[in-house]
């Protein structure tokens, strides 16, 4: 029969028969796809406990699986990355189906924080924060390493904490060279820098904006980071 949300089924469990006959009746075509049966036995409450105990993830317990978040999700629907399914991430976390959840390590980091899901969730789940909290749990378990986005975020924090204000240009420059993003080659960066100089907008390096007395604030920020903070 036609299979709803086929992308949620592992490819090797989808059986497509060239010719399918049932009681002598040819049912080939869209009726020729079958799902191999499987039994999931390993459930653990660890994921739900961990996510629900973080300030960002606490609303996970309200989810009633309506799928509204996924229906409008920027990554799922607009961008078309079907594997990115916040409703399903929450389902797996609630159920504690860890082995299933692990399979989404390659995509879960791609949430762009557009917050359409949070806006629309009828149950007050802060979906976007819950998704990030699940991602955080997966990383803490070693199921996934750092990602292009987490490396960016870490670099962002480091950059911001230097003087209290972000230096976008320095952050981008160091990130693209470390990640070897060919698109932002020297020519691109130079053109951009020239334009900024011409329009008097360079405030990188020694010219950057500084927050008076920032050292004291930075010490507190470092203490928060070292102490782990909540979540």
């Amino acid at each position: 029969m036609p299979i709803h949300e086929k992308n949620l089924v592992d490819k090797d469990r989808l059986l497509v028969k060239e010719e399918a006959k049932l009681d002598g009746l040819d049912v080939s075509g869209q009726w020729s796809t079958f799902i191999e049966q499987r039994i999931l036995g390993d459930y653990s409450t660890d994921v739900l406990d961990a996510v629900a105990s973080t300030p960002a993830g606490k609303t996970i317990v309200n989810c009633w699986q309506c799928g509204t978040c996924t229906a409008g999700c920027c990554m799922h629907t607009d961008f078309g990355l079907r594997e990115f399914n916040p409703r399903y991430f929450i389902y797996l976390a609630q159920k504690g189906a860890e082995d299933e959840l692990k399979k989404y390590a390659p995509v879960i980091w791609r949430c762009v924080t557009c917050n359409k899901c949070v806006e629309r969730c009828p149950k007050g789940v802060r979906v976007e924060e819950v998704v990030h909290s699940i991602e955080g749990y997966m990383r803490s378990k070693g199921w996934m390493g750092d990602t292009p986005a987490s490396r960016w975020d870490e670099a962002f924090v480091k950059n911001t904490l230097q003087t209290g204000v972000l230096d976008e240009l320095a952050l981008t420059r160091s990130y693209v060279s470390r990640e070897k993003l060919a698109e932002f080659n020297n020519r691109f960066m130079l053109r951009m820098a020239l334009k900024l100089v011409r329009t008097g907008r360079i405030r990188t390096g020694p010219l950057r904006h500084r927050v008076k007395g920032w050292e004291k604030v930075r010490d507190v920020a470092k203490e928060i980071l070292e102490g782990g903070g909540e979540g």
Binding site: T54, P55, A56, T113, E129, H132, E135, G136, A149, S150, W152, D153, E154, F156, V157, T160, G164, V165, L166, V211, K212, G213, W214, V217, V220, A221, I224, L225, G228, G229, E230, G231
Partner: peptide, 21 residues
């Protein structure tokens, strides 16, 4: 003497820092 608000980046690194800033 305002500081960076943390945008959407800091919250994935640390919750408390993302509220403190």
């Amino acid at each position: 003497n305002y500081n960076c608000c943390g945008a959407t980046e800091v919250k994935t690194v640390n919750y408390d820092l993302s509220v403190f800033l």
